[in-house]
Every structure is written in C-alpha cells, then in structure tokens.
Computed example of a mutant assay.
Amino acid sequence: MSKVLSALSVSVDGYITGHNPGPGHGLGDGGMLFDWYFAGDVPSQVMDGFKLSEPSAQLFDTLASRVGASLAGRNTYDDSEGFGGGSPHPTASLVVLTHRPVPEASDRQTIVTTGIEDAVAAAKAQAGDKDVALMGGGVVTEALKAGLVDELVLHQVPILLGRGRPYFQELPEHIQLRLIEAVPAAGVTHLHYEVQR
C-alpha cells in the first residue's frame, strides 16, 4: 500500500529555505542545506550528479527509490522555476497543490486546486504501488493536519538559519512520532520518523 512521506533538508532551527526565497532566488541564501548531496564520493543510483557519503547514499537512494509521485505546494513550485516542466524526481510525476492558476504546467504535472485530500489522492493514483513524497512546509503541515502523513525524514543540517520558510507551520495539536532510525553522516544527520496515529 502506498505511503505518504516527507524527506526534506532542514536547519537545526527548523527552516527548509534561507532568507529571501522565491522565484529567481530558489532557496534564498539557504543553499547549504543541500551541501550533503555532494559531501562524498558515492554516486546516487537515483539522482544523476549527486555524490554522497556512504551513509547518506544508502538512506537517500532507499527513500528515493520508493517515490512514485511528488506533491509540491505552490511556493515550492515557483521557487523551483516549475521544475523545468518536469518533476524533482527523475521518474516520478508531480502534483502541485495551488489556489492560483499555473499556466506553465506541463503534461508531466497535475494541478490540484481543491485541497490537500484531493492532491494526496491524485498523487497516490499516479504513484501506483510506490509512495508519495511531499515537498514544502505548507503541504507537509496541511497533510499532517489531515492525518495523511505516514513518515517524516528530517535531513538535519548543522546550521542555524535564523529565518526562512519553516518545515512545519502551526499545527492544531500534538502529533506523536516514533524514531525509526538516526543516521549521522557527512554534513547531515538523517532522522527518520513514523507518524503515530
């Protein structure tokens, strides 16, 4: 059965972008959140160009090989220049949750405007027997509120950014997590949690 997960790079103080993210600026000054993608000599078997440390490569490729569809919020979509008409994952389709028209969407992208439940359902339908990867703090928070998230992975980078876009926005109640594994690696600690229901 398909699962819904989020695996994002995050600063120790909880930000997934740096200062001033946006179209034409990407992650703002938060690009160091992804330095661990290139902190080793083990090529990723899923993402071309990534050379990770051994522990990161093993965890990253295991997670990335599970993904059949990605689901991004509008800010993530715009910050990433619409992923060049494709998807952040080389073989997965992309669903974009937005409340505004996306005139540049391609045939590899599905636009959903009717809420998180419909967006997750569309992504699951496209993922088949694989999993759905959530991208963006707003999407992750809305999916958590709706009880739709199975796993969270925080690729925690040892930096305090001070501000930017947070991984999690305001949640209405406590959500219990169970630590599945913690993997220290070059420039990052991978914290893999199961969301308890």
Rank of each mutant, 00 (worst) to 15 (best):
I159S: 00
Q196N: 13
P158L: 05
I159T: 07
L179E: 12
G162T: 13
G86K: 15
E142T: 14
P184G: 02
D150F: 04
V112I: 15
L134H: 05
A125T: 13
H192T: 03
S87L: 04
E104K: 13
K124I: 06
V157N: 02
Q109A: 03
E142K: 15
G115R: 10
E194R: 15
V188S: 03
P158H: 09
H192V: 06
Y193G: 03
L160Y: 03
V153L: 05
D131V: 11
G115S: 03
E173P: 02
F168A: 08
I159V: 13
L171H: 08
A92F: 06
A123M: 10
A127V: 06
L148P: 00
V95Q: 10
T141P: 02
A133V: 14
A186Y: 01
E117Q: 14
K145S: 05
Y167A: 04
P90L: 11
G86C: 08
Q176A: 14
T98N: 04
L179C: 07
A122L: 11
G162N: 12
A127R: 08
A127W: 11
P103T: 07
V140Q: 00
G128Q: 12
R163S: 04
P166W: 07
G115N: 04
T113D: 12
D129K: 14
Q169F: 09
R178P: 00
T141W: 06
A121K: 13
H99C: 00
L171M: 12
A105P: 00
T141F: 06
E194V: 15
V149T: 09
G162D: 07
R100I: 07
L160R: 01
I116G: 01
L97T: 08
G86L: 10
R108D: 00
S93Q: 15
G128P: 07
E142F: 09
R108Q: 13
V120Y: 09
V188L: 05
V112C: 07
E104R: 15
V188P: 01
L154K: 11
Q156D: 02
L154T: 03
G164A: 03
Y193C: 09
E194L: 09
Q169Y: 12
P158G: 07
D150A: 02
V188C: 03
Y167F: 14
L97E: 08
Q126H: 13
H190T: 06
L134P: 00
D129L: 05
A185M: 04
A185Y: 00
V96F: 00
A127M: 10
Q176C: 03
H155F: 12
L97A: 10
E117G: 10
D150L: 01
E142H: 14
A105V: 11
H174Y: 15
K130P: 00
L171G: 08
E170A: 12
P103Q: 06
G86I: 06
E117C: 09
G128S: 11
D129Y: 04
K124H: 04
L94R: 12
P101D: 14
E170Y: 02
P158R: 08
L179H: 09
H192E: 02
P184H: 02
R165I: 12
L97V: 09
I180N: 13
K130T: 06
D118A: 15
T189I: 02
P103E: 10
G128L: 11
V132T: 05
L171C: 08
D129P: 01
P103G: 03
R163G: 11
D150R: 01
T141R: 08
L152N: 05
K145P: 00
H192I: 01
E142N: 12
P172N: 08
I175H: 14
R165V: 14
R165W: 10
I159A: 01
M135A: 12
H155Q: 10
